[in-house]
């Protein structure tokens, strides 16, 4: 099983902010909503391109190109044109640092 890897300090990301990270060489996004952190693959399952600057609302990210929306907790697609999920990662916050690892 992969180990948790430190990707940021809690203070690096203000509430509502986000950071581009690599998890196991996969471009990913670490998103903070209030005091909770979510890590998802930064690639839309519809067109294979980045979700990086997509709007985040109600714990879901919207693809900036075609409007596909994904649940940040599960990666599930919430509307067309996406029909496949995106990967999500396990996140832990310890002593002011954020750690991420791929789900086993």
């Amino acid at each position: 099983m992969n180990d948790f890897e430190r990707v940021a300090a809690v203070n690096d990301i203000p509430p509502g902010g986000r950071l581009s990270i690599l998890v196991d060489d996969t471009p990913s996004l670490l998103i903070r909503i209030q005091d909770e952190f979510f890590a998802v693959e930064d690639v839309c399952s519809h067109d294979g391109q980045p979700l990086t600057n997509g709007t985040v609302e109600n714990c879901a990210i919207t693809c900036p190109r075609h409007g596909a929306r994904f649940d940040l907790r599960t990666g599930k697609p919430l509307c067309m044109p996406a029909i496949e999920p995106i990967s999500t990662f396990e996140v832990q916050v310890r002593n002011g640092d954020v750690f991420v690892r791929p789900r086993s």
Partner: peptide, 8 residues
């Protein structure tokens, strides 16, 4: 390049 992801 838009389909070639070199962010990693």
């Amino acid at each position: 390049w838009k389909r070639v992801d070199i962010r990693a």
